[in-house]
Design a protein around this nucleic acid. Sequence first.
DNA 1: GTCTATATAGGGATAGAC
DNA 2: GTCTATCCCTATATAGAC
Lengths: 205, 205
Amino acid sequence: MKQLKDTSTEEKILEAAKEVFMKYGLYGARMQDIADTAGINKALLHYYFRNKEKMFDKVFEGALQKYFTQMDVFGDTTLPIKERIFRYIDNIVNFLSEYPQMTMFIIKEISINPEMFKEKVQPLKKGRGVRFIQALEEEISTGKIKKVDSVMFMINLHSLCTYPFIGAPLFKHALKANGKDYEKDFSTEKLKQSAKNFVELTLGK
Amino acid sequence: MKQLKDTSTEEKILEAAKEVFMKYGLYGARMQDIADTAGINKALLHYYFRNKEKMFDKVFEGALQKYFTQMDVFGDTTLPIKERIFRYIDNIVNFLSEYPQMTMFIIKEISINPEMFKEKVQPLKKGRGVRFIQALEEEISTGKIKKVDSVMFMINLHSLCTYPFIGAPLFKHALKANGKDYEKDFSTEKLKQSAKNFVELTLGK
DNA sequence: GTCTATATAGGGATAGAC
DNA sequence: GTCTATCCCTATATAGAC
């Protein structure tokens, strides 16, 4: 019986809440909409999560947790720099192809409610980024990789991996209007390859 | 007296509406919030725009118009391909540094309300994109530029120019936490240069 | 054109039956 | 645990004075 916990009411609600909050944000989401999506009664939402904010917090924390886990590999000092970058690319692209709305959700809510960053995001990072950038700059100074602006490089890297999912609604329509088929012309494997090409072109083979 | 029209009540409302709708979206935005931001009475919103949806439509159409105008240069057949790309980079980066939330606003609202695309976006594009991709593929086949996947290239190009503004809230915090200063380490000029480097690395000098 | 006051609907939350 | 009924505040929208 224990394995049925996955489809418990609480789980169903969380799944529905994730979907609705991601789409509409904290203020745009409607409790009724979440209840309908979960296929349960509205009052049950309050039974399990007390109120809207608390439910949102659960969803948001889960999202952050999952999202930043994809970047843990940057901190794996047992791997060479470029391997860490390549693994990050694989991780984040796989992850976003499953949750394409995740990035926008996190960024939107943080920009509306900046205090959330300090509260919830900061603890997940713990200087892993600074250490990676240091390592990158070290390899640049020893000439092991080409001279680049480390910050700009990291921004570009994230951009190449992330925006294709954010912009997908536009790309899809644009390509279809142009006689191309998004599903055919875009694939996660192509995207990974393309990002890795960028890394090699920028940092050297 | 005519030149005071700019600060007319209607203009003030539209400015405020733009700000609030961009931040919260159609469903998350509050009429009271818009009125407060504009510094006028709530009832006036209805006097000028009748209801919330109509006001949103005005704001959204204006946003689309401005956004897609930045891409018109792709269709300027008097310019060589690479020059068109470079000018697009300048245009979109300048534009987004003024309206960093624009892309997310448009994409969010379109993904919530997909019918809006056909209604409002399609007319602004008129096959300009398809012609550009054709021109790109032509130059590839004649060997004037390096062989690349044209669709993937366009996606990458947009990604590099657009995501830095979308992700800015995250980048800012991440860099500050790492002892770097976003305002110092990131500049629109650096970004343009970086995107142009990508173009040259990818398509050839 | 701009305000105050108010009608009406929508949405979050609770009480209480089962 | 789950439902129905209901409370009450919030938000959109309108009426009417100035």
